[in-house]
Amino acid sequence: MRAFTTLTALVVPLDRANIDTDAIIPKQFLKSIRRVGFGPYLFDEWRYLDRGEPEMDCSNRPLNKDFVLNKPQYQGAQILLTRENFGCGSSREHAPWALEDYGFRAIIAPSFADIFFNNCFKNGILPIVLAAETVDQLFKEAVDGYRLTIDLQTQVITTPSGQNIAFKVDENRRYRLLNGLDDIALSLQHADKIKAYEAERAKRAPWLFKDA
């Protein structure tokens, strides 16, 4: 996984609450058995005027010019600013894969759906929860060319005017993301504990340990 330390990047404001993972990446693209290549289909039904199908070449598809991601001033944005309950619905990790493949490295919102929030950390994306009033303020400021600096080490966002906004990430998640660590390798360091747990639990609940 790609590590996340600091990022200074353009912000795109997507002013809509309860954006679900079906909207982030529609189901027809979930048929892929790969982990990459979802970026062109990110927000497919909002981004294009036609109906997207897997493996479609998106370079000639008609764009919805009113959709914020298509506006020229937001091209190259790596920070997504949005509203509450972002990523609700389906657990599909294709949603963070699509966001990451498009180029997003951080998402700022007043709240996130739990599964999506968790999936972001597995893919080098930093989801940041800020108070609704702070998000409101950023929406007001985030017009053309608005860039934020996000420092995960110090857990501070710096605005163009020099204002510092603190945020908080669970220590364990912060450590893994800062170092781009493989979760499985870390968990397997506890292999002895897992085995000891199994031995003890097999006495209490033998019916769960009668594997062939």
């Binding site: 657990s91 968790n118 999936n119 499985i184 968990s187 397997l188 897992i194 199994e198």
Partner: peptide, 30 residues
């Protein structure tokens, strides 16, 4: 799959996960 919550009907602690966690559960049972 997010609708794994269904299995909680029988007092199982059941929840949906992403694909990275599917791999994690396969590899570590945790």
């Amino acid at each position: 799959d997010s609708h794994t919550s269904t299995h909680g009907a029988s007092a199982a602690l059941a929840f949906g996960i992403g694909t990275s966690e599917v791999e994690h559960a396969l590899a570590t049972q945790c």
